[in-house]
Design a binder for these strands. Structure first.
Lengths: 104, 104
DNA sequence: CGATATACATCGTGTCACGAAGTATATAGT
DNA sequence: ACTATATACTTCGTGACACGATGTATATCG
């Protein structure tokens, strides 16, 4: 998928991936794979950004001798998802403009 | 509208704006206004990029003592629009993932 | 015992939207 | 006559961001 097209979707995708239950980096990548592929460097950058902007909180848990950082969505994160849904109308109208036939 | 979300759409929007008839910078901005707002600096950057990648050709015309650069879409440009339409299925599935209810 | 999966982190690079500022002409308002 | 405002295009600098490359470290499986 086109890089530019992904950009606006990734942050919200990641939020959606932890919406129903806390998750961690590696799992998020696997869960999102059917929809969007993103590399580890991209994901961790996004998670850091979402943490800084208070969209999620982090909690480190030891699991099988390895560290795992569980991410938990905040109210602000949930609000961001809702905001995205609102924006979707605008996106759809852009799509229709682009995909319109040759009338006009 | 979210900057990141716009990014993937702008190039194709501009192509769509000149699809049915050749147009020029100022007019493109006005035509796109109901769908996406973009500044002149943004538009001209995009036009230059689309020209470099052979999505459109340029022709300078004198109009009322002022210069006007008319942009004409190429076959490659038309193909880019078609490609975008194909990609749309993927975008929609991402949207459904994000907007899905609370069933897991 | 070496490969593969799990798990997270950092750095550098290239792409890109956009504000700011500039150049230049025509028209409408006062 | 002067001053906005609209038209029309250009260049520069900045900050945001995805991603490949690279690194660290442990567990499991063949």
């Amino acid at each position: 998928m086109d890089v530019q097209l992904k950009r606006g979707l990734l942050d919200v995708c990641v939020l959606a991936a932890i919406k129903n239950e806390d998750s961690y980096g590696y799992k998020i990548i696997k869960d999102l794979k059917p929809y969007v592929e993103l590399s580890e460097s991209t994901l961790y950058t996004i998670l850091k950004r979402l943490e800084t902007s208070n969209m999620l909180t982090v909690r480190t848990v030891e699991h099988d001798g390895r560290l795992r950082k569980y991410y938990h969505i905040t109210d602000e994160g949930l609000a961001r998802i809702e905001e995205f849904k609102m924006e979707w109308d605008g996106i759809m109208s852009i799509y229709r403009f682009i995909a319109r036939g040759d009338e006009q």
